[in-house]
């Protein structure tokens, strides 16, 4: 297996950095080498953020994803989508929240853009907006096939607060369901 490069983007406070952190945990538990590094600006909340997660069987040195080599990106904010989309490889997959991210017609030609209203699902179906990272991780695990579902869920449950474990478990599986439906329909 060669190096896998995954990116999550959003704005500060959405839990994007945590999602990447959890993905990195799961990759290591699976027995791979993995590194994650977040990029953010000096705004406390609301600034564009991204987190790159790399996994490989070989030692990883440079910790950032290489522009043009990212196979999967998930984005829940337009500001960061516009900045970070260029890192995704041609025909790579970008999962966006269509209520928050607005790709151009050209973007849709360059990448396979899948629309899942992640924030709405977290709010309306789970009733907890903080579970959006777990939905995104569910989507990521189904689409990339890069991680073991069970191990990823374990990693999520280790990181989230005790009182929202159940909500995050449901959110994770809901993310997988939505991804499945979307992939089947395409």
């Amino acid at each position: 297996m060669s190096k896998r490069q995954i990116r999550f983007t959003g704005v500060g406070g959405q839990g994007i950095i945590s999602a990447g952190d959890i993905l990195c945990d799961a990759a290591i538990k699976t027995g791979m080498h993995s590194v994650k590094i977040g990029t953010y600006n000096s705004q406390v909340r609301g600034g564009p953020t991204a987190i790159d997660v790399l996994c490989d069987e070989k030692t990883i040195y440079f910790p950032y994803a290489i522009d043009g080599e990212i196979e999967f990106m998930c984005s829940v904010a337009d500001a960061s989508y516009q900045i970070y989309k260029k890192g995704v490889m041609t025909n790579g997959i970008i999962v966006i929240d269509p209520n928050l991210v607005y790709p151009s017609a050209d973007d849709r030609k360059s990448w396979r853009i899948l629309e899942i209203p992640i924030v709405e699902i977290a709010k309306n179906e789970i009733g907890n907006i903080a579970t959006q990272s777990s939905i995104a991780l569910g989507v990521a695990v189904h689409i990339t096939k890069c991680f073991d579902e069970k191990i990823l869920l374990e990693s999520i449950l280790e990181k989230v607060p005790k009182k929202s474990k159940e909500a995050n478990r449901r959110a994770f599986f809901l993310g997988i369901e939505y991804a499945k439906k979307l992939v089947e329909s395409k």
Partner: peptide, 9 residues
């Protein structure tokens, strides 16, 4: 900053 923030196994 890169070394400070990058986390890995």
């Amino acid at each position: 900053e890169t070394l400070g923030h990058a986390a890995r196994d």
